[in-house]
Design a binder for these strands. Structure first.
Lengths: 135, 135
DNA sequence: CTAATATCAGGACAACTGATATAT
DNA sequence: CATATATCAGTTTTCCTGATATTA
């Protein structure tokens, strides 16, 4: 089963890249947005640690989200080294209106090809697997 | 939920790369092995189509599996352009003995961190998602 | 001749490691 | 001075596109 999951992983990743069109976000970008929404503002280094990445690796991710107008950074008044990142109002509005979801290939596929009950099963499995990667 | 799945995908991919040690296989390599085991011998082009990749992209994957002694290629007697790939006896033995599974980080994590019932749920979700990527 | 297979060469991307500047 | 943050530069991996030789 682990092998099936591995195989699925590779194919899913390729499909996501192939089907991606402008406006779609990479898995890492989505993960960062979800974390900012859940935990509030954070610095680049904090986000990198939470994602299991190096600070140097998350910089381009942040840059992409900033240029898309989804997050914005402001210097931390208490610590001049840090830049506090937070979701923009435009991003919250974008998510609330569901436009983010409608533009997403994966979301469309999940809704079109799986019954609501099956979607629930996948959702539970995602929660279980999150426990593994979050250590 | 699609966003959660996307986020999980990125993190799982990073974890797999970080935890990989010699002997572990990449997701694509595993996928190719599974397909050869299920459908029997095939050519590189056939495998590439099945995986949703270009023939040029699968060549290094095959080369890695060949140098690991897991698959072997023989010229197709009926069509001089093709090379028929099949699992080696060593590979079948390796899988049968469970050594493949024991060396795999993901397998160990699934067994250690999820109950048998939870493993079943994940397995079912994998089957559902396979329908999406296989089109 | 056209189509399919394989392969060579170069490129894009997302992560990595190492080194450096700056602020605490 | 020691630590933490951010960033610059170069490397690796895995896939891609384009072009070419060979065989059916």
């Amino acid at each position: 089963m682990a092998q099936d999951l591995r195989a699925l992983l590779g194919k899913l990743k390729r499909r996501l890249r192939d089907q991606a069109h402008v406006g779609d976000l990479t898995p890492t970008q989505v993960s960062v947005l979800l974390r900012l929404e859940k935990d509030g503002a954070a610095t680049a280094s904090t986000l990198a640690r939470a994602e299991g990445m190096r600070p140097q690796s998350i910089a381009p991710v942040i840059a992409a989200l900033e240029s898309a107008g989804l997050v914005s950074g402001a210097p931390d008044p208490a610590d001049g080294r840090q830049t506090l990142l937070s979701l923009t109002d435009a991003c919250r509005k974008w998510v609330d209106e569901g436009r983010a979801a409608r533009q997403d290939w994966l979301t469309r596929m999940l809704q079109a090809r799986l019954s609501p009950q099956e979607q629930g099963e996948v959702g539970r499995a995602v929660e279980l697997l999150k426990r593994l990667v979050d250590d």
